[in-house]
Amino acid sequence: MLNFIFALVLGVFFGFALNKAGLTKYHKIINVYRFTDMTVLKFMMTALVVSMSGLYALRGLGLITFPNVPATYIVGNLVGGIIFGFGMALSGYCPGTAAAGAGEGKLDYLIPGLLGFLVGAVVYGLTYDKVFPVISALANYGNTTMPDLWNLSPFLTILTFTLISLLLFYMIERVGWQRKESNQ
């Protein structure tokens, strides 16, 4: 029960962050794929730097253990990601931003979004046993992390990711890795 209340509260902050980042707007999502607005990338990489630093620090201090790590099965992760990008470029949302946009009162998020996710979920659930066992068996490394898989120091892995992120942010903000919107 308490966990459900946590989920609700965490969800509120999550949806709030999505709204304030502007990701509940169609153009913010599509424009990352046109390189005219890199907000999605800045938002996600910042969130990753903060959360990976915090989580590995807390685990290092013995304050938390990690929940089940999402499984790595290269072909499925990649093919799923490609199809996901296709869907994202069409609709201009993903399941999380659609839920937040729906709360804002955007009916093009609430109705086709919710219905589409439910239809997709049904189709997936009914075809699961023909698709998932096959694709997840290919190049499957299990519930692993990069430090475990390659015997790296988590600290250096996070430091590397942070430096890559900062470099990318610099290139986007200062070196013009973001295209100008050609107004028509």
Binding site: G81, S91, F117, F132
Partner: peptide, 15 residues
């Protein structure tokens, strides 16, 4: 958007 959402949910399942 509807077709996009179907595709998103299915792809999330695979990934």
């Amino acid at each position: 958007a509807f077709f996009g959402a179907i595709i998103l949910e299915y792809a999330a399942g695979i990934a």
